[in-house]
Design a protein around this nucleic acid. Structure first.
Lengths: 137, 137
DNA sequence: AAAACTATGCAACTGTATTGCAAAGTTATT
DNA sequence: AATAACTTTGCAATACAGTTGCATAGTTTT
């Protein structure tokens, strides 16, 4: 049989084990980015290290991207289908200081930056902090 | 007597104690942003918690700003004279993946972002990663 | 000089991230 | 089909950044 998400994993060269299918499913259900600790809480019983390595594998293979939102715990979210995690694929993230949620603003591309002479660019982590629409109600 | 830097501290409503003068001096000597652990190593013998609280005080009073560069340890750098840490005062930071240094690109302002409806902005943490001029030689 | 407040130092603790190693599971080879 | 080689998972333990509580020292106010 195999999960509905096998294809996404296989396309990114990740063997779709049971664990990975589960993790992918959970990630897919999230509206906002999620930390390792939060992911752990979605399961009855699971080994944190296995989740940790699953996330690392997913990140390496560009199934997910990491967001350093400054809370002390890295958040993760699924990449868009077309994402190669190149600078041009990068979007802005939003961290709500009220509810603590971290959003992917997939529609807002990270603006280009002209670096000083001889600085070369690999990636950009841009996190806007403020209050989200839910908390502004 | 008093240190040369008393004025800067007093202007920001920080009492210029001996400890704070020392920390300010060290921060002022840095070309790149520095972590708590790195700061600790600049002293023969010093209590980490005191440094920690000194940095927190400096940050609160906008003597320094914190940079979340994604390395797992927050970096700190002196604010510019005119800085009020408002969005318009914010500059881009650069983290070199080769030497590990984090630079303040004081001349490069963080670009404005149009947030979705009902999202309000407080601050922005923008870190560009790549290779710095020194490491590109 | 005493009281009130602020800063410092030490000990202890929390939580995230990470590594090593053995067991279980999977894939390739004979 | 049995073995070997490799990959994934689970458990134990560790490393380290960040943080809190409390007692002492120092400073300022009354």
């Amino acid at each position: 049989m195999g999960s509905n998400y096998d294809q996404q994993l296989i396309e990114r060269n990740v063997k779709p084990t049971a664990m990975r299918q589960l993790v992918y499913t959970v990630l897919n259900e999230q509206k906002t980015a999620i930390s390792l600790a939060e992911l752990e809480q979605k399961f009855e019983k699971v080994d944190r290290v296995t989740l940790y390595r699953t996330l690392k594998t997913f990140e390496d293979k560009k199934v997910i991207h990491a967001i350093e939102d400054g809370t002390g715990s890295v958040k993760y979210a699924l990449c868009q289908d077309t994402c190669e995690c190149n600078p041009k694929d990068l979007h802005v993230h939003f961290h709500c200081t009220e509810c603590g949620q971290t959003y992917c603003l997939n529609d807002i591309q990270v603006p280009g930056i002209n670096l000083p002479q001889n600085f070369t660019l690999e990636s950009v982590n841009m996190v806007v902090k403020g209050v989200c629409d839910e908390c502004n109600k």
